[in-house]
Design a protein around this nucleic acid. Structure first.
Lengths: 213, 213
DNA sequence: CCATGTGAAGGTATTCACAGCC
DNA sequence: GGCTGTGAATACCTTCACATGG
């Protein structure tokens, strides 16, 4: 069934599938069934088939999915079929870790620039990226960069994002623990690490009590 | 309406509210309306009221919510009313950043131990935590630690989590980009940073095309 | 009068069961 | 036989509109 809007939850799962497919491809497999992929990535097989059905028939009944072809299609859907260049703002502990993080590559994501306000950091090179002065942030406009990662303190987040939007950034991954306001055309995903850890205890039964949950 | 199961999506938003309430409390406010909180955290006001209604009447009509009392209640729901001690496994770039991360404190979360397999790291102290040998991981059993954060390469994740489960860990925040299997009684939240960035381009219209989305 | 709390309506996503095809 | 693809059923979550109470 084509021409169907892809649900947001499906979009959220697509990178998971993509990762699974690429690992399978590296093992030399050519086809994979929804069942095998399900076991591998931890999503139910009918959910996988349903998700794939939103954007076309890529499977062969009795065989499974052509890994190469499906991976290519998912990349296209996610618009990862071109290399995506990203800028990092805030090169503290977290920012440095992100610069060194090897996981972006498989999605064709590349952090090509980094900015900070700390004069002691400006000029340093981390993982082949030289840290620039945040005052020069508007230079990203001419460097074919569409994504930004902000890893600055809460108080600096809105200013950082405002400057990035002015410099033509289209999407922001925000690690600062706060809401940031942007024009509707810009997409922000906020990822508050502490918050993720904070909801973990909810799922842990209190010691000495066995009821509830 | 009491005695109602709290939806997962509400649980996901509770830490957001809690953060907002604590910031408001620091500003000296005593009451806050769902509207003000909505503006502050970026969730609709009716959603907030609905969420709060799942666990009791904490608001006063015409006035708003008692910040202190509501914050205390949310902490209780999330089981953050006691200090939660956590262990970190994997002190690479990301792990080090997490050790230094100041954001856990407001939720009463505390990383009190860290483990790695690299002999060059063992014995070093980062942010008052001394890195221990992963071979000694089973010692966490006797140290009142219920949560774990794993920041190891994919290939090491399942082993790390197995040892942690054996050591009595009840909840795991997994930064490794893969599924990890655990007994049903243990809760895992996987947070794959690259994946979050990878779904951002989907929301960015392709240059030169204005249709679709 | 203001802001909460909540049934009811509407929308979205998950799960199922099986028809269709290789 | 095996596995995909999908309508239908179900569950879940969001949104609305307004009655309720300080």
């Amino acid at each position: 069934m084509r021409y169907h809007k892809i649900p947001d939850e499906t979009v959220r799962r697509l990178p998971v599938y993509l990762r699974g497919l690429m690992v399978s491809a590296n093992q030399g497999d050519k086809y994979i069934s929804s069942r095998s992929l399900a076991d591998f990535v931890g999503v139910d097989s009918w959910q996988i088939r349903k998700d794939f059905s939103y954007f076309g028939d890529f499977g062969t009944r009795g065989v499974g999915y052509d890994i190469e072809r499906l991976a290519r299609e998912i990349k296209k859907i996610l618009r990862l079929d071109v290399i995506r260049r990203a800028v990092l703002v805030g090169v503290g502990d977290l920012g440095s870790a992100l610069l060194a993080y090897p996981g972006f590559g498989i999605y064709g994501l590349d952090i090509v620039a980094a900015f900070d306000i700390d004069p002691r950091k400006i000029g340093n090179t981390v993982n082949r990226v030289t840290i620039e002065d945040f005052a020069q942030i508007d230079t990203v406009k001419d460097r074919d960069i569409s994504l930004a990662i902000i890893a600055v303190p809460r108080a600096a987040a809105q200013l950082a994002v405002d400057k990035l939007v002015a410099a033509g950034i289209k999407g922001v991954l925000n690690f600062a623990p706060c809401k940031v306001s942007v024009p509707k055309r810009v997409k922000v995903i906020t990822l508050d690490i502490a918050m993720e850890l904070a909801r973990l205890p909810y799922y842990i039964p209190r010691a000495g009590r066995t009821e509830e949950l």
